[in-house]
């Protein structure tokens, strides 16, 4: 008998958990389960057999946070692997602590990718102000393209941080709204939005000036801020010129002869209280 649980775009963890509990508590082997997202529904297995009634079962407490992350993964076979590890956890309670186990290692790697995707979303979402005239709450809008299905996992971060304003984060598949203190998600296909606001000029000024041209480390930048994010970052189109001019700027600094101190320098230094214990201009020991 083949079971084919279908996972929705929103609330995927809850549906996976209920199905996995029903299957695992009845000892259904992993090879008899075909996990798939709803939109990718194929006709080969259809809806599969009806799930059996769930019986009581326990899982190690580290499993739940891991499962929430892995359920958001777009990697092929993620939900299947999660179920396989769940089955093995029943007989091997400390399985998840064994990173040398190939399945555990794969599962933690999947979770790590999702966690990194969440971290990058916290970092690289850029809000643009869209407050209409006369509104008593400020309103902000952002477009972001995450790798995994993390919209629900990440929303709490933005709620805890930006609760005194209304905001919307649009991704290609989900729109997250925070409106007058209420959070909602909607599975909605959207096209990329090109957004900007006035404060971006100040931000770009800051970005360009906080860069030190004498320390060019392009690889270090790109490993942390891969190019795929650049098109939605208001500062990123400055990067090519910053890199191109860096060497010339440093050369200029080195070739410019030291200037004469401004007149006020001597006046100001003369006014400072003398420090008897340290003579000025003494050579290091």
């Amino acid at each position: 008998m083949i079971y084919a649980p279908r996972l929705p775009r929103l609330g995927v963890f809850d549906v996976w958990r209920d199905a996995a509990r029903a299957l695992a508590s009845n000892d259904v082997a992993a090879d008899s389960v075909n996990w798939a997202m709803e939109e990718a529904c194929d006709t080969l297995f259809g809806q599969g057999a009806a799930l059996p009634a769930a019986r009581a079962m326990t899982v190690p407490k580290e499993f739940i946070p891991l499962a929430k992350l892995v359920c958001a993964s777009r990697a092929t076979g993620a939900h299947d692997l999660l179920y396989r590890v769940l089955l093995r956890c029943r007989n091997t309670p400390h399985l998840l602590n064994n990173r040398a186990d190939p399945q555990v290692q794969q599962l933690t790697a999947l979770a790590k990718h999702v966690r990194r995707d969440m971290h990058k979303m916290k970092a690289f979402v850029r809000f643009r102000e869209v407050t209409p005239q006369g509104s008593n709450r400020r309103q902000f809008l952002s477009w972001f393209e995450p790798d995994h299905r993390i919209e629900e996992l990440i929303a709490g971060f933005f709620v805890r941080r930006f609760a005194d304003m209304d905001w919307v984060i649009v991704t290609p598949e989900v729109t997250t709204r925070f409106d007058c203190g209420t959070l909602s998600h909607e599975a909605l296909a959207s096209d990329r939005m090109a957004l900007s606001d006035d404060t971006e000029d100040l931000w770009r000024t800051y970005y360009a000036n906080t860069f030190n041209p004498a320390r060019l480390k392009i690889k270090a930048m790109q490993s942390e801020m891969p190019k795929k994010y650049w098109k939605n970052l208001p500062e990123a189109d400055l990067i090519p010129d910053m890199i191109a001019q860096a060497e010339a700027r440093v050369l200029q600094m080195q070739q410019t002869a030291p200037t004469v101190p401004p007149l006020r320098a001597a006046r100001i230094l003369g006014r400072l209280p003398a420090r008897p214990e340290q003579a000025r201009g003494q050579k290091p020991d």
Binding site: K122, R160, F211, N212, K217, K219, M221, M225, L233
Partner: peptide
């Protein structure tokens, strides 16, 4: 709903310049 901002343990790097 009052105030702005949060801190949650680990810091976040919001951008990187070409100096890495």
């Amino acid at each position: 709903g009052k105030g702005l901002g949060s801190t949650e343990g680990s810091g976040i790097c919001h951008a990187y310049t070409p100096d890495g």
